[in-house]
Amino acid sequence: MTAITGGEGYSTVPDLCTLNVDIRLTPALDDQASEDLLHGYAT
């Protein structure tokens, strides 16, 4: 994970949270495997 943004202060609950994820594709981790990985973390 490269960045997490959300909210205006330390103790507030944001209505939106954005995660930036950097995944490098390799011969062992193709586009479908990386998509499956992200879906696995999101659920």
Rank of each mutant, 00 (worst) to 15 (best):
1 M>I: 12
1 M>P: 09
1 M>R: 11
1 M>L: 13
1 M>S: 11
1 M>T: 11
2 T>M: 12
2 T>C: 10
3 A>P: 02
3 A>K: 04
3 A>S: 08
4 I>F: 11
4 I>G: 10
5 T>N: 05
5 T>W: 02
5 T>L: 02
6 G>Q: 02
6 G>M: 02
7 G>I: 00
7 G>F: 00
8 E>C: 02
8 E>S: 05
9 G>R: 05
9 G>Y: 03
10 Y>A: 02
10 Y>S: 01
10 Y>D: 00
10 Y>R: 03
11 S>F: 11
11 S>V: 07
12 T>A: 03
12 T>N: 03
12 T>V: 05
12 T>Q: 04
13 V>E: 01
14 P>E: 02
15 D>A: 15
15 D>I: 12
15 D>G: 12
15 D>Y: 09
16 L>F: 05
17 C>Y: 02
17 C>F: 01
17 C>M: 15
17 C>I: 14
18 T>W: 00
18 T>Q: 06
18 T>S: 07
18 T>K: 11
18 T>F: 00
18 T>D: 02
19 L>F: 15
19 L>G: 14
19 L>E: 15
20 N>L: 11
20 N>P: 02
20 N>A: 10
20 N>F: 00
21 V>C: 12
22 D>P: 08
22 D>N: 14
23 I>T: 10
23 I>P: 07
25 L>V: 06
25 L>M: 10
25 L>N: 02
26 T>E: 03
26 T>W: 02
26 T>R: 09
26 T>M: 06
27 P>I: 02
27 P>G: 05
27 P>S: 06
27 P>D: 08
28 A>K: 11
29 L>T: 08
29 L>W: 10
29 L>R: 14
30 D>W: 05
30 D>A: 10
30 D>S: 07
31 D>G: 09
31 D>K: 14
31 D>L: 12
32 Q>C: 05
32 Q>D: 14
32 Q>I: 13
33 A>V: 01
33 A>H: 08
33 A>L: 14
33 A>Y: 01
33 A>W: 00
34 S>M: 08
34 S>T: 11
35 E>M: 10
36 D>Q: 13
36 D>F: 04
36 D>L: 08
37 L>N: 07
37 L>A: 11
37 L>K: 12
37 L>C: 12
37 L>T: 10
38 L>G: 04
38 L>M: 11
38 L>I: 13
38 L>W: 01
39 H>Y: 09
39 H>R: 15
40 G>M: 07
41 Y>A: 12
41 Y>S: 03
41 Y>L: 14
42 A>M: 13
42 A>Y: 13
42 A>W: 13
43 T>Y: 05
